[in-house]
Amino acid sequence: MNAAARESATPLRSVGLVGRGVLLETVRRRELYVILVFAALFLAGVLVARAVGIPNPETGTFVLNLGLTLALGAAHVLAILTAARQIPAELENRTIHPVLAKPLSRAEYLLGKWWACTATGASTFFVLAAIAWIAVPKLEDYSPPMLVQTFLAGVLSLALVAALSLLGSILIPHAMNVVLVALVVWFGHTFGGFVVARAAGGVFAGFARWLMAYVPNFNKLNLVARYTDGIGPLPPGEFLVMTLYVTICLAACFAASAFAFDRRRL
């Protein structure tokens, strides 16, 4: 490698280039357009509802909640699908070999994939949520700082789901990974509640509560209902704790992913 090449191959630049490849590929995939079609259908539905008339503030809030929830859900679906296929597809197409032959560590490769998957999900969330938010008339009071926190928490949630999907893609088959991560995202908190409730009052109650805390609780990162309920923003301390919670989960996902990926035969 010459001096210019060595200089240009800083870790940050390498991570950026890997991610850029993911973004370019995502734009070419059909999932994005399927989700955009759904967004267009939702928009058409809201516009029809507006034309017919939204008769009371409660219905306006209901439609707004529906729109933001759908936006967050669709973004999660896209983030899971995008992240889960990255490594299996590169292995199958054998494109991973020339990439890793470059001055790029496996951890950097994972980091590049992760930020791009997060960005894909986040941009989908922003676009769809903006469509919903603009289209639906705001007939009740909502806290603008809470809206900002809702978006930030959504991005944290997408970052975590992308990291979790990447980890799963190294350890288990693709389809199983997608299903498993989706189950954790949408039913993880219910499962945790189920186990804790079953153990309640018994000798293992504390253990069950402790164990289930390791299952990432995406329900805690969904602030849409809090926003549409007209509740104020979380105090900075609480939001910081939430961010720390996600950061620890992310760091653990990366550590486990890097560990598993280093030992994986390509």
Binding site: A153, A213, N219, K220, E238, V241, Y245, C249
Partner: peptide, 14 residues
Amino acid sequence: FLLLPLLAGRVRPN
């Protein structure tokens, strides 16, 4: 991550 349960109970935005 092993100490995560200590933090998880404090995250209750809803």
